[in-house]
Amino acid sequence: MTRAEAKERNRRALLDAAFEIVSRDGYRARLDEIAERADLTTGAVYSLFGSKNGLVVALVTDYLRPYYEEVERAVPAGLDLLEAVDAFARHYRRGCDGPDALPRLSLQITLLDMALHDPELGSQLATSVRSQENHLIALFTGRAHNRGHVTLRQAERLTTALRALLVGLSQGVPLGLAPGADEDYFAAAARALVTDVSLIDHDSAPSRGRRGKPTDAATRPSTRPC
């Protein structure tokens, strides 16, 4: 085994061990236990990831990367925006029935708890998640919608809204808090976000009169794309 192969093996062992222990213990997860589970020393953690926080951030990246690769396959090019959002939501819902649904939910809740206890880690985790979500933003940007095409800014806003909606729904499914939320429900809820209201830029919002009502120009049917 080459040095590079040994390094990758150790990295993989630590990430797998961290997934198990962090999912179980959250911010109480001990670095020495993670290293022991991987048959390594804490020195290997510092050598490969720099710190416990570095290991946790790498764990999130490792966890999200294959997910976004699957999304790109589930939402092919050529679909318009409504079709793409529909396909994405249905793919997301199918994941709720997978064998790893409960471990994934446990990890999500645990990472949120860790972020609340450690603001520095929370900032690092947010940066990691946003970098992965760029794949989803790119997936929606440029798709046909309302006689136009989705801009980068609009795709960013839509991704934020979809994340909030689908994460919330997917957490409710295994907990029994979303009865009847099947693929059709997920898809319909996601498509409802694809409107001028959710995609419109703040700077382009309708102007309002003195009493807060839209002006005549704002109430006329919009021909503005997307």
Rank of each mutant, 00 (worst) to 15 (best):
H91C: 02
R37V: 03
V56P: 06
Q154V: 06
R211A: 13
L193K: 07
A18K: 11
Q154G: 07
L169F: 02
D39W: 03
L59A: 12
A144L: 12
A161N: 05
T110H: 06
I137G: 01
R28D: 11
V57N: 12
A187S: 08
R12K: 14
T110F: 05
G142D: 14
P206T: 10
S222Y: 02
L169M: 11
A188E: 15
L55G: 05
Y185F: 15
A101I: 01
R153I: 02
R65T: 15
L40V: 00
L107N: 06
V71F: 01
L64D: 13
F19T: 01
S51K: 07
F88E: 02
R9M: 09
D113N: 10
N53H: 11
L82T: 14
M114R: 10
Q124W: 04
L48N: 05
V45T: 11
S128F: 00
R9I: 09
K7C: 09
A189H: 07
Y68T: 10
L64E: 11
R220Q: 15
Y63M: 04
V56H: 04
G142M: 13
A74E: 05
A77H: 09
I21P: 01
L107F: 00
T219W: 11
P174V: 01
V57L: 12
R224D: 13
R93L: 04
D100H: 09
S207N: 08
I109Q: 12
L152W: 10
A13C: 04
Y27C: 08
D16H: 13
V150G: 09
E8I: 11
L112W: 02
L139C: 08
A74Q: 05
E83A: 15
T42V: 14
L14F: 04
T195P: 00
L136Y: 00
L31I: 11
L59Y: 13
L105C: 05
R30E: 14
E120I: 02
N134Q: 15
S123M: 06
A38V: 02
E83I: 04
A18E: 06
L158N: 06
D32A: 06
Y185I: 05
A77T: 09
A161H: 03
E33F: 12
P206R: 04
G180M: 00
E120T: 04
A6T: 14
S204T: 09
S170D: 03
C226L: 10
Y63R: 08
E8H: 06
A190I: 10
T219A: 13
D80Q: 05
Y46A: 00
L112N: 11
V75R: 06
A6W: 07
D100W: 04
A190H: 07
V45L: 06
P66D: 10
T219C: 14
A84F: 06
F186C: 08
H117L: 09
V60D: 09
Y63E: 09
A4M: 08
R65A: 14
T215I: 14
L139F: 09
R93K: 02
G168A: 07
T141N: 12
S170Y: 00
D97K: 08
P225G: 12
T195V: 05
V167M: 05
V129Q: 11
D39Q: 06
S198P: 00
S131Y: 02
